[in-house]
């Protein structure tokens, strides 16, 4: 909180100094990145890796401020309402595109100006290693014959993986029983204990259990196979047309001047390409995916449309 106050204090000081800020090149003071999720999580990790490299590239300090609560609403809301001067940015996540549809907050990608996308992780349909199902089709066939019998755990009601499993359900024409949890980790524990039949979470969240032979992945919801799981077919390959995943990117409040966004975009591309950032993402098993500002903005719009459609179909 001290850091944030310091940023404000400097901001006001500059304002009082007769708006000299107009002539100083951007950026000339520390930049704060709002992270809507808790310290120590995946989003926080990638934000810190980004901030560390960005401090070098931009020549000003980048600090991370975790503003948690309301399933990400608090942080996104704070970031959207911040002064649109490029000094308060938000690490936006998939959930931003679901708030309106779920009736959680009147908040969406329109409240932000996209800068860059830096990460994307597809959903992985995972079951116990000794499950009788060896392909996604086996699971779908079972679900067809026994509607609602297949228990699929997800990371929370209306969460990215709940929506992913619902997409699979709709596309394959079956019915699952969705079991929401308080995050992906408890869902994985329930799967390990054999209390549910499958989970839809990111590959990183089940990777170790797959490697030691307790779980297996039936299909991954990415466009192409993943390098780390080359032997696992995509969901599309198995005849179900679903491409879905979670993603993270950097965005500024919507009224931020275009030239500032352009400067940030250019610098963040350098950060993204730096070996240190790439290595940090790899260590945390976070998928790397770059989109520039205009592509990311377009992508955000589509994501919100898709999520809204999915939520209204499922009530």
């Amino acid at each position: 909180m001290n850091r944030k106050n310091a940023v404000w204090a400097i901001g006001f000081a500059l304002l009082l100094a007769g708006c000299t800020a107009d002539n100083t090149p951007f950026p000339s003071k520390p930049i704060t990145v709002i992270v809507p999720w808790a310290a120590g999580g995946g989003t926080d990790g990638i934000a810190r890796a980004l901030a560390k490299e960005a401090s070098d590239v931009f020549g000003v300090m980048w600090t991370v401020n975790n503003k948690t609560g309301g399933m990400g609403v608090s942080g996104h809301d704070f970031g959207a309402r911040a002064r649109a001067d490029g000094y308060t940015l938000t690490l936006i996540t998939y959930e931003l595109c679901t708030y309106k549809a779920l009736g959680r907050a009147n908040l969406g990608p329109d409240d932000f100006k996209a800068i860059v996308q830096i990460n994307e992780d597809p959903g992985a349909i995972t079951v116990q290693a000794d499950s009788p199902w060896n392909t996604l089709q086996d699971m779908i066939n079972h679900a067809k014959e026994n509607p609602k019998a297949v228990k699929v755990g997800n990371s929370g009601p209306g969460s990215v993986w709940h929506i992913g499993a619902a997409m699979l359900e709709k596309e394959a024409g079956v019915e699952f029983t969705h079991v929401p949890h308080d995050g992906a980790a408890p869902a994985v524990v329930q799967l390990l204990g054999g209390h549910i039949d499958a989970v839809a979470v990111s590959p990183a969240e089940v990777r170790q259990h797959v490697e030691v032979g307790r779980l297996k992945i039936l299909g991954i919801m990415s466009k192409e196979r993943m390098a780390d799981f080359a032997e696992v077919p995509t969901v599309v390959e198995q005849g179900v047309n679903v491409v879905h995943g979670t993603w993270r990117g950097l965005a500024a409040p919507k009224h931020t001047p275009d030239e500032i966004v352009a400067t940030l975009e250019e610098g963040c591309k350098k950060v993204y390409d730096s070996p240190a950032f790439q290595e940090a993402a790899k260590q945390a098993y976070l998928g790397l995916q770059y989109r520039n500002a205009s592509d990311f903005q377009e992508f955000l719009k589509q994501q919100e449309i898709a999520a809204t459609e999915m939520v209204s179909d499922n009530g």
Binding site: A39, G40, G41, D44, G45, R48, A280, Q283, A284
Partner: peptide
């Protein structure tokens, strides 16, 4: 949960 994150950051 936070310690887990700390270990992950350490690779």
């Amino acid at each position: 949960a936070i310690m887990l994150g700390a270990l992950t950051i350490q690779g």
